[in-house]
Amino acid sequence: MHDAPPATPLCRLLGCRLPLVLAGMGGVSRSELVAAVAEAGGFGFLGMVREPLALIEREVVQVRQRTALPFGVNLIPAATPAPLLRAQVDLLIALQVPVVSLFWDVDAGVIARLRAAGITVVHQIGSAAEALQAQEAGAQALIAQGVEAGGHVRGR
């Protein structure tokens, strides 16, 4: 029998057993994979950048049908038209999504709205300056991206 891994501050914040996080990769991180990661003890983010509201809602519902464990949704405010971003944030608040991860430019207004709704905010950053901006805006955890990252590389 194996001893349980020690709970880390990140595990306590996200509500997972293992400090393993599935990135919100567009087109890949969908409900089946996110739920499987959660059931395995990690934490998964649905990749929902610029996705329509109906798809976001369907994917959130499907995660909840597959697992009762926490999960998150990934958005990129700087890459999303403002009206769609507002509607996405409204939807995530209405659906009571427990965690939202953000990337690219720090949008303090989005972070404030999510935090006011009781949603945990994780922000992916690519520099020390961005880390400080995200922290000052209220992000509760940071994902430090390096230059080797796939997808949207911002690491310096």
Rank of each mutant, 00 (worst) to 15 (best):
R115P: 01
A116S: 10
T67K: 12
A68Q: 14
H123M: 08
L46Y: 00
A128K: 05
E148K: 13
H2G: 10
D107V: 04
L132K: 11
G26E: 11
G118F: 05
C16K: 11
D105M: 06
V121M: 04
R17A: 15
M1N: 07
N74A: 08
I93K: 01
A7E: 14
V110L: 04
L10G: 07
Q65I: 09
L102P: 02
L33E: 00
Q65F: 06
P5V: 15
V97H: 01
Q140L: 09
A134S: 11
D90R: 01
A134W: 04
A23W: 04
L91C: 09
M1G: 13
I143L: 15
V21S: 06
P98M: 09
V121L: 08
D3P: 10
A141P: 03
G15S: 12
L53H: 06
E32K: 07
A129I: 05
A116F: 03
A79W: 08
P70C: 14
G27I: 06
G27K: 07
A129C: 02
T67W: 11
L46E: 01
L22V: 04
V147Q: 12
L75T: 03
G26T: 13
P9V: 10
P9L: 10
V100F: 03
P52N: 13
I119T: 07
G47T: 07
V121T: 06
Q145Y: 09
Q65P: 08
G118L: 07
L69Q: 14
I111V: 14
A82S: 11
P6F: 12
L92S: 01
G27F: 08
M48K: 03
R58M: 09
V61Q: 12
A134K: 07
F103M: 11
A129R: 08
Q135N: 01
G26L: 13
I93Y: 00
F45H: 03
G126A: 10
A131N: 02
P83M: 10
A94C: 01
A128M: 03
Q96V: 09
I56T: 11
F43Y: 09
F103G: 13
V106M: 06
L69A: 14
V34K: 02
A131Y: 05
I93T: 02
A112Y: 05
V106R: 05
D3C: 13
G41I: 12
L91Y: 03
Q145L: 15
